[in-house]
């Protein structure tokens, strides 16, 4: 991506990925939601989401960093800081 995306753009992009991988409705993917507890996303789906997010935003999300991304907001912040 040529320009650094805004947090809103990152959230929208993540919501699309989460819908594709886990079938979660995009309006449910908000910053305060926990991937595991609220959106019922398992650890393998998190890997798939990370891989797609890496492609979409041009970031690296190693597995040990992935473990720290508990909420959608954590993921938005990580992408924003590393994109």
């Amino acid at each position: 991506m040529a320009d650094k995306p805004s947090d809103a753009q990152i959230l929208e992009g993540l919501a699309g990925i989460v819908e594709d991988i886990a079938g979660v409705s995009p309006e449910d993917v908000t910053a305060d939601k926990s991937f595991v507890d609220d959106l019922d996303i398992d650890s393998l789906s998190m890997v798939e989401i990370a891989v797609q997010a890496e492609d979409k935003f041009g970031v690296k999300i190693p597995d040990d960093e992935l473990a720290n991304l508990k909420t959608v907001g954590d993921a938005v912040n990580y992408v924003s800081a590393n994109a």
């Binding site: 650890s43 393998l44 998190m46 890997v47 798939e48 990370a50 891989v51 597995d63």
Partner: peptide, 12 residues
């Protein structure tokens, strides 16, 4: 096995 690492490798 480190499930997430192996899964990432295998699926990509």
């Amino acid at each position: 096995q480190e499930g997430q690492a192996v899964f990432r490798w295998a699926t990509t």
